[in-house]
């Protein structure tokens, strides 16, 4: 089976989520990549070095510069004439593009796969991760998105893919990119961090988030996260949100501080290797999934922890 993997990149480097998608795709057969964008020679070269990669299709065109699905999906659909499966990471970019590709191909997409059980059989979470469905496609071609935390990342070296330019596609003329506000962070990316320190509503303010959560994260070299309640209350930007409707993470250690543990939050972090919860309510549901729970006032316990670790 020939599989085409969407390479998510920032114009210069391949994003980690792509590497997990490559691992999932390699379980299906031959792995080809698609690098689309403007001025993506460097990304194409980096992509060709990913272990296990065959061909790297490069579509260098200003129309693909901002991943606009109206322009990108027809390009992918055309390349799918010579591929059996399209695989994208389940990032906001992948989720935006892949279903548009699936409908153009008249196939059902299988979203956020957790495992490959057979050539057309996969597992995926439903009901906010409260159930796992094993599903089998009957479509001629597969369109999949891959949950990044469920697969190992492919090695970024050792591969020797051949780079091939694609001339197909262009601007569909129905959408354009206006601008972006990307939150600046000097710390690890949330979805690939080994340690995450997350704060909830109990913090009470953005000042307290800065004062209590940030120093612990700084000390551990951790990424910062938050519950939806903390985001909605304006303590942190919304891309900090961990949960069913935010980011799905599975770090080695997840600190849930002042987070009660609603099922929508648990859906985003319950696959973490170790969960540490600090909450003053000993009945908070977070303690049912926490490996280490501390019932304490976070305003005194967290600074003490930061000082002692």
């Amino acid at each position: 089976m020939k599989t085409l993997v969407w390479v998510e990149h920032d114009g210069s480097a391949v994003k980690d989520a792509t590497l997990a998608a490559v691992t999932a795709a390699s379980k299906l057969g031959e792995v080809h990549l698609l690098v689309a964008g403007e001025g993506v020679e460097g990304v194409a070269k980096a992509a060709s070095e990913i272990a296990g990669v065959g061909k790297v299709h490069v579509a260098d065109n200003v129309a693909f510069g901002h991943n606009l699905p109206e322009n990108v999906a027809p390009l992918v659909a055309e390349l799918m004439e010579s591929h059996d499966a399209f695989v994208a990471p389940a990032t906001t970019t992948g989720k935006n593009i892949a279903p548009r590709v699936a409908a153009l191909l008249d196939v059902m997409q299988i979203s956020e796969i957790l495992s490959v059980e057979g050539p057309k059989t996969f597992t995926r979470p439903i009901y906010a991760g409260n159930a796992i469905a094993t599903v089998e496609s009957s479509d001629a071609k597969l369109v999949l998105t891959v949950r990044g935390t469920a697969f190992e990342k492919a090695a970024t070296s050792g591969g020797s893919g051949t780079v091939e330019a694609v001339s197909a596609g262009g601007d569909a003329g129905i959408s354009s990119f206006v601008g972006a506000e990307i939150a600046k962070q000097d710390r690890p990316e949330l979805t690939s961090a080994k340690i995450i320190v997350s704060g909830g509503r109990a913090l009470g303010s953005s000042e307290k988030y800065e004062e209590v959560i940030v120093p612990l994260a700084d000390k551990l070299g951790a990424a910062l996260g938050a519950s939806r309640a903390a985001v909605d209350a304006g303590y942190v930007p919304n891309d900090y949100q961990v949960g069913q409707t935010g980011k799905i993470v599975a770090p080695e250690v997840y600190f849930a501080i002042g987070i009660s543990g609603a099922i929508q939050h648990l859906a985003g972090m319950k696959d973490s290797k170790t969960i540490v919860a600090i909450n003053k309510d000993e009945d908070a549901p977070i303690f049912q999934v926490a490996d280490f729970g501390l019932v304490a006032d976070l305003f005194s316990a967290v600074p003490e922890l930061t000082g002692k670790i």
């Binding site: 196939v107 991760g129 089998e136």
Partner: peptide, 30 residues
């Protein structure tokens, strides 16, 4: 349907954790 649901199962259950008594014990565990 194009996609057949073969089965639906419970997600893996996390093994029960422990409650630590204080910050010192948590630091030791970490």
């Amino acid at each position: 349907p194009r996609v057949k649901t073969v089965k639906v199962s419970e997600p893996p259950v996390r093994s029960a954790g422990i409650k630590v008594a204080d910050v010192d014990e948590l630091v030791a565990k970490l």
